[in-house]
Simulated scan of single mutants.
Amino acid sequence: MPNTEPMTQRVELATVMDRLAVDGLVTDYAVAVDDGDWEAYRKLFTPDGRADYRSAGGIEGDAGSVAAWLAESMRAFAMRQHLIVNRRVRFGILERDTGDTAQVQADYINPMRLAGDGSAAPDFVCGGRYAFELRRTDDGWRLREVIVREKWRRAPQGSGVRVIN
């Protein structure tokens, strides 16, 4: 019987490296939104990448259109901080090569402060779950789809803010 231990170790190391890269991509997504770096946001997606923010009062569309919408919408908030936790990663198969796709389910809490509030504390908080669909490309892992599933929000009375994420 052939010794497959070195091969198994290589596969396990590759899986760990992919998990780290996927985790980094999700973190880069949160940082791009929080920092308002819409060029970085666009670069996180595949050319056909899409995002769906409808459950949070937003839009669904290609990454460029959504980035433009976010740039306008996020002006309402002087501070944003996405905390993305409980990341569940599942690797899939594309063209018979294991590991070319990934699904990530992750919970989020997103404290924000409305522009013009003047305080340091967040006055607007929401939470929910992301569904990320990723694809391995020649440039590394990229987002093919992001779906926001907002579960709750706390907003100041009379703020009229609909767009939160």
Rank of each mutant, 00 (worst) to 15 (best):
D35T: 11
V89D: 02
E133D: 11
D139S: 14
M74H: 03
D123A: 10
A121M: 07
M74D: 03
S73A: 12
K151C: 00
A76T: 05
T98N: 13
G128P: 01
S55V: 00
A32I: 01
R90N: 08
L83P: 00
V85K: 14
D35V: 01
V89H: 09
E95A: 15
A56W: 00
Y29H: 07
A115P: 00
R10F: 09
K43T: 05
L83S: 07
T15W: 01
R149P: 00
N86V: 00
Y41D: 02
A120T: 12
G99A: 13
L134E: 04
D107W: 09
G49R: 15
F124Y: 07
D18N: 12
V148Y: 03
Q81F: 11
A106S: 09
G64T: 06
R162E: 15
L134D: 04
Q81K: 15
Y108S: 04
G92W: 13
P6N: 10
A76D: 08
D139R: 14
L70Q: 06
P2T: 06
A131P: 00
E95K: 15
R144G: 10
R10D: 03
R19V: 00
A21E: 11
D28R: 15
R42L: 04
L94M: 14
G58L: 05
Y29G: 03
T8W: 07
G140A: 07
D139H: 13
M7T: 03
F132R: 10
G116M: 03
A40L: 07
V163G: 05
T46N: 10
V11E: 14
E133H: 11
N3D: 13
N86D: 13
L44Y: 06
N3W: 01
N86W: 04
Q81H: 15
V161P: 00
D35E: 14
R162C: 04
